[in-house]
Amino acid sequence: MNPPTSESAAHLITLLASIMLVLQLLLVVQRMLVANIRVFATQSLLLAAIAAVVGYAYHAPHVYVVAVLTLAGKVIFLPWWLERLVRQIKIEQEIDAFVNVPAAMLICGAQTVLAYIVARPITSLERLGNNTLAVAIALMLIGFFLMINRRKAITQVLALLTMENGVMLAAIALTTYGMPLVVEIGIFFDVVVAVMVLGILVFRIRETFASMDVSKLNELKW
């Protein structure tokens, strides 16, 4: 069972996780690309903070490593790199999404409810905070919706990254001490390389199609 000191830590983690969810909703309505990237950076900062709280409250030094990796990679390096990409390809604003904002909000609300229902049978297995697992699943579902709803390649990359944030949150919520360090470090490098590869592709798509509207990628059918 949790040591008594973790009572306040659990509250703090719940708070931080719910702010992550709010930021995810902000991503759905925000159309400026640079602002989107910064919202993602803030969300990752919260994830790093959760890891740090876990490391402190449970005296698990190696979770600090996770916090530092998240901070260096997803809060500082990737946002910087993506913003540079946005400047290079000179597209700053998302065109209209497929679903308008009020409808998108309703869909996200429904997805959050769905996530809570899905997570219900296994909340007893959560070792941290309240409903962190539900938030993690909600992050994934909304990330999925974000990816379908937007046309710009960079927003899709951001959606993929927020889904990954959701998975990492679930990892912390379910396991407390995180996963073996070699796995954490491996995942970190994979994500960084993935975004760089995606960046190269976005750049080439922009050069070849004179746009990064992925709905123009429609030549290949069955």
Binding site: M163, I205, T208, L217
Partner: peptide, 21 residues
């Protein structure tokens, strides 16, 4: 680096990415 190959690569990496998440 053709239009179609970029499209294929984008689908591959996005679908694969979601799958791998």
């Amino acid at each position: 680096n053709r239009k179609t190959s970029l499209e294929a690569a984008w689908k591959y990496v996005m679908l694969g990415g979601v799958g791998l998440v």
